[in-house]
Design a protein around this nucleic acid. Structure first.
Lengths: 148, 148
DNA sequence: TCGCTACTTAACGTAAACGTAAGGTAGCAG
DNA sequence: CTGCTACCTTACGTTTACGTTAAGTAGCGA
């Protein structure tokens, strides 16, 4: 059902193209701690990304674009998720049930917070939309009353 | 039904408080042509605003905050409305039916454009929300399957 | 192994959207 | 008429979120 994931390693340029941003933005986000600022990498070596990373970045960009979150706010939201991504590594290797539970118990409230933000914005937008609708109805009614 | 309008003259500080922004922002918007950059005013005199201005500014701020429109985009949207506000002056004084029709015919497509922007954003947000929902459902299902 | 291309770090530059400070004035209360 | 306060203009400063350039290197195909 979901789009096929390749599970290969991406280089920064590919990631940028996939997500629709520039490599500069990716490095900048890493600088801010938004994106695998931790991952060890021998000095000068190319950055490597998984498709989990790509999905994560895509989510961040959408939160930025759709909700207008600042990078500080994104960082706050993502800090917890960073731990989650770290934990996900272990998911593959040592999936003890106890470990899995801890991972899920950390992930769920995170997605819940994102969803809450989206829902809140949807409500304010709905309010604004209704105001515009009724304004439009008033204008149109006036216009009809002045039929040419 | 709508909140009572006072129909008095506001000074810039009052407007700022009402709308929840600073006076600097209002002057800056005027500088950009977003807000009565045209209205004549003897040099050094205080700016005067009507409650129509307040409503207009409030709408602009919401478009900025909810849709993340840049001030350039806001300007594009508002340019037409500027003419409208100018025309509205005449509405009070000389409301010939022909004039009214022209005003309405200019106003309606404007509000329609704003509404279209709001609706579009609502849709993308709804999509994002649903993705987050299904992600959340997957996580919760996993969690249940690992009942402690 | 050569060579090309996309990567690396470091540093300075920039556009948007205001903040802030200085020196002066309008306008209203008393 | 006197003050006081909120306004005025001008101008430089600041933050955010990257863009751009420079000088060098990693990694892969031929």
């Amino acid at each position: 059902m979901t789009t096929q994931l390749d599970d290969r390693a991406y280089r920064i340029g590919e990631v940028a193209d996939l997500v629709g941003i520039t490599t500069r933005t990716i490095r900048y986000y890493e600088e801010l701690g938004l994106l695998g600022a931790d991952r060890a990498r021998s000095k000068g070596a190319h950055r490597q990304y998984t498709d989990a990373d790509v999905g994560r970045l895509q989510e961040l960009i959408r939160l930025r674009d759709l909700l207008g979150l600042t990078l500080d706010e994104l960082t706050a939201l993502a800090e917890a998720e960073e731990a989650r991504a770290e934990l996900r590594q272990r998911w593959q290797s040592d999936p003890s049930d106890d470990e899995r539970r801890r991972i899920l118990d950390a992930s769920i409230p995170l997605v819940e917070r994102q969803l809450a933000l989206v829902r809140a914005r949807q409500r304010t937008l709905a309010d604004f939309g209704e105001e515009l609708e009724s304004k439009l109805r008033r204008l149109r009614r006036h216009r009809r009353e002045l039929a040419d």
